[in-house]
Design a protein around this nucleic acid. Sequence first.
RNA 1: GCCGCGGUGGCGGAAUUGGUAGACGCAAGGGACUCAAAAUCCCUCGACCGCAAGGUCAUGAGAGUUCGAUUCUCUCCCGCGGCACCA
Length: 945
Amino acid sequence: MAQMYNPKEIERKWQDRWEKSAAFTAEDNSQKPKQYILDMFPYPSGEGLHVGHVEGYTATDIYSRYKRMKGFNVLHPMGWDAFGLPAENYAIKTSVAPQETTDKSINNFRRQIKALGFSYDWSREVGTHNPDYYRWTQWLFTKFFEKGLVYKKKALVNWDPVDQTVLANEQVLPDGTAERSGAKVEKKDLEQWFFKITDYANELEDSLEQLDWPESTKINQRNWIGRSEGAELEFKIDGHQVSIKVFTTRSDTLFGATYLVLAPEHPELLNLKLQITNWDEVETYINEAKNKSDIDRSADGKEKTGVELKGIMAINPANKEEMPVWVADYVLGHYGTGAIMAVPAHDERDYEFAQRFGLPVRQVLEPFYTQETEPGKVKKDMPYDHRNAIIAVVKHWSEDKYIALKWKQVAWVTFVTGGIEEGQTAEEAAKMEIEQETGYTSAELVEDYGLIHGLFYHVPKKVNRVAHAQALLFALKNDSRQEVSAEELEKHEVLWLSAEELKRQLTPGTHQHTLRLMLGTQGPYIGPGILNNSGTFDGMQSEEAKQKITEFVGGKTKTTYRLRDWLISRQRYWGAPIPIVYDPEGKAHSIPEEHLPWMLPTDVEFKPTGTSPLGQSKELLERTERIFGKGWRPEIDTMDTFVCSSWYFLRFADAHNKKEFASKEELNKWLPVDLYVGGAEHTVLHLLYGRFFTKALHDMGYLAFDEPFLRLRHQGLILAVDGNKMSKSKGNVVNPDDIIVEYGADILRLYMMFMGPLEQMKPWNTQNIAGVQRFLERVWRLGTTLRTNEPKLEAKSSSQEALLHRTIKKVGDDIESLKMNTAVSALMILLNECEKEEVSSDTYKIFLQLLAPFAPHIVHELAEKNGVDLAKWPAYDESKLVAKTLIIGVQVDGKLRGSIELAVDAPQAEALAAARVHPAVAKWLNKGEKKVFYVPGKIVSFSTV
RNA sequence: GCCGCGGUGGCGGAAUUGGUAGACGCAAGGGACUCAAAAUCCCUCGACCGCAAGGUCAUGAGAGUUCGAUUCUCUCCCGCGGCACCA
């Protein structure tokens, strides 16, 4: 009599066994190839494990178990990102020490994770709050300090008034609130410790390319690093020794620079104090700016402000013209040189500012579009991909309809700007003007080029310049016009071609045209173009001009980054103490290795006072004086917890090393991480810092690699049943514990994988659990009754055999690419087939092997009962992947009309013959066949047109 | 505003060197078993027309390329994520 599937019992049994036998310990001495599979370690919050954790951890667990079966030596560790504010805030409320809260949470997390049967190597568990661990965090800090990668400076920093601490730029959201507390971030001028991550800006950008990471994550990092290549140009102040350096990416527009702008923080302002005749006004402005937050300075739709520095003038090095100098807070002090040259004609911000204060606008660029045409073809080397853009709408001359014209259909375009004479139609005016301008009659254009004319009808939005044009002549390359409804007319933009240019380009006998077109918009033109009003540089293209003009004025090319140094000081208690002491003169010294770990003192109150809690510790002060001498003071800030998590993946290689943060040998054996899975919220913070640490340690000679995570994937957010984010306040949180109690770990794991693609955001739906539950129950039933069946040995039909081999291949491939949802569905299909045809025990055994990584408990139990070897992943036979015959569709004119069964390799003649006699097909073929397509194993397609 | 990703049945989602759209599962309807229910098993299940055979439409909307488009190209709409005075 078969027993019922009892997940609770089975799961407890196998979890105990795995625990006792330390079944998943990575092998220290092994000939097998290694595989380091890592989850982002969790912050052990009091709320316990979230289903989002379960999703990611299940995926890596399946991957790890699969890799072990494939013969890899797998390192799959787990640890705790244990420092952080929630435990400290809890301490403030309840006076329970953070240490105690944290350990309790960790125990709960560990219990929950073990209840899911994940195959972690628990012997390598680490917690960042353990002195054994933070001792090495501190040690790394001192090494960075020695290398000059850590420094202290006074800076305007982000201050979180709720959490009472400073924050890194990365921890402030775009709306100016703190990521963690939600408080509005303030500016404070404080002396703080920084990591010099900017030293690595270039490398961090460059090596992104080689990583197998989600493209969006790479782009986020690129944006954050913000590499920008340009030039540094120097502007002399007329009659003084002083000169102002500006950074620009558009030195090609230098001749159009009509004024300079300095940031309010610009140091040169004070040096010019005596020359500036309206200093009072300027000073007031500077002080106002200082008190504004970044958000206020850049508030949406805010009008730009600024004050002219009266009494001084700068000289444009290109044309030696005088230009006024302004101070304005739209220029940022910390980026580039803190000063810009303003080119209002070709920069939106400068344009806006110039309009506001009546400053001159000088246009020095004409936009261009290069189009190389063969008859009917457009090459892909246009600066802008406007080939398919609808550029205008015309009323056709001879037919009464509106036509949308795409750029690729247009050989040239012009507008008639001269107006319409009395008694003249727009059409006639167009013809007249085009004849005057080009020397060709419209009839000749039609004759020579096979073109069609259209009458300009509509003045589209955004186009001011041609708003009063009366008509336009179109020349179409072909006749594939698209009719447009009157409403759609509103939407289109029109490109402008000057009449002279048209004339110049009209060279009969060639199909190469360079068309210079101008967007008929009012604002600045910010794209590349051809220079004018630029002295000897007229006619040159932007790219070339950038370099030439930079040389011409003696500037130098320069690369600038948006990335700023990483502020790591925190005025909080629950973190790793910064291992620095100050001598009586106030000079900072790193704490020598023999005094590490530099213990976090315990004699402190947790009430926030705005200064670091460590400052209250008598013990810390006494310790410092005892070790270093009278008058020495300890640093009382702690480190950002992101420092702790920037190297934990290294520690796992050698988690209990007492002499080093990890031995070189172990590091280079296990690292880099082969697969890293975690939430997308870490796209810049943790992942950038971890890369920075790795590169810095590589350069110091500790690591043989310089990228920590070769392959990265994010798990998608799990939404609540109601489609909202899960949150305690909404009461819609799903607790993994509850699901395990009700269904068991295997069902939860399988359900989470079956929900959908790993990286996608997916809503939780308890109802759907029934599907995987039934599946496992059927697996169980089949497994427990198997012995009572007479196994039918390999009496399988070709199609069933093909299914088995295809499933082996598919499940393996899907695990490799983390498409767990389709792997589960393939397993379901195989099981369905097994049940239908009365399973052979061999097929079922292979099925169990395939299911093992997904639902390890039930499979181990059934494998034990049925004598299945779970140490090996089954192999498939390439030659058996395809059934000998299969059913393919027959189309006539693209519509499916029937299907026929054919041998996979049936020759075309046979396939066509079979298709033609199919009655449903035959009746559509009476018009006669024009063309036939046969793709073996896929389709037969007839065309009658 | 810019960049990136996405939009497929009642629902979660399958399907890409372009080749039978809707795999697998949930829900729903019908049936078998049962005194009854649960569980289990079988059948139906994109929309419309039709007794049926069959046909028409259908992957956010519109167009294009193709014998053939969820897949490639373009325009537009909507959702999500990131960036947003970075010169």
